[in-house]
Every structure is written in C-alpha cells, then in structure tokens.
C-alpha cells in the first residue's frame, strides 16, 4: 500500500515538474505579453497544483495536507485575479495583442452569433 502511494505521489510530482518546465519554456518562446500569460497559466494551475497534490499524497492525513490544500485553493483563487489585473494594465497602456489573421478565418465566429473584435483601430491615447 505504501508503495502504491509512493508511485502515485512520484507520478504527480514528476508530471507537475514537467508541466512547470513546459510553462517556463512557453514563457520564453511565446511572442507577446498576452500569449505569454497562457504559459504562466500552466505554471500557476496544473504545474503547481500537481506538485502540491504529490506532496499531499506523500504527507498523508495530517495537518500538513490541510496546509497544502489551503495553498492550492489560495493559488487557484488569486492566479486569475493577478492575470486579469496585469492584462487590464497592459491594455490600458495600449499594448496591442499580436493577432494571427489566418486564425480568425479558421473559426467561423458567425455560426455562434458573435463577431471578432477589430483591433486594427488605434488605442485611445488620450486616456493614458
């Protein structure tokens, strides 16, 4: 039984580590701020989450597990908030997202009754 728990926790730890590395690579490779946020999202959600889950399995039913759980819950509540605050700050400064024109044609937005946003217009410089 102990061996089984060890294997589960090792798998979770290794998977989380690999995902964090991928997130770091994404943060390095992706072309602009808004796309890099997705890379940071991997580190914040499943990367850290899986590592903490692995540690939880390792700790068993103790106070340590509760604390790890608290950290995960807290991380999952704050991570979107910080990302959104950062995205809004970048938008207010007029940092335009890099767009792929070809991609817009791939997904037919009209079939869902929605339109894409036209970002070719100049940002409102008077505000900043």
């Amino acid at each position: 039984m102990a061996v089984l728990f060890d294997i589960i926790s090792w798998a979770l730890l290794l998977g989380g580590s690999a995902l964090m590395l991928i997130g770091g690579i994404g943060l390095y490779r992706l072309p602009d701020v808004y796309t890099r946020m997705h890379g940071a999202g991997i580190i914040d959600t499943l990367g850290a989450g899986m590592v903490f889950a692995g540690l939880m399995v390792q700790a068993g039913l103790t106070l340590v597990t509760v604390k790890l759980g608290l950290i995960v819950v807290f991380l999952f509540f704050t991570s979107p908030t910080t990302t959104h605050a950062l995205a809004r700050a970048a938008q207010a400064e007029g940092v335009l997202p890099l767009l792929d024109d070809k991609g817009e044609d791939d997904v037919d937005l009209s079939q869902y009754g929605m339109d894409g946003v036209d970002l070719t217009e100049e940002p409102d410089k008077s505000k900043t």
Binding site: G23, R36, A40, I43, L86, A89, V95
Partner: peptide, 13 residues
C-alpha cells in the same frame, strides 16, 4: 508587463 508576469511566475515557483 512581460517582466511583471515573469516575476509573478517566479514567485509561484
């Protein structure tokens, strides 16, 4: 903003 994002991720790490 890239720097802030990176520092935030660094904090998580």
């Amino acid at each position: 903003y890239d720097r802030i994002l990176a520092v935030n991720s660094f904090g998580t790490l």
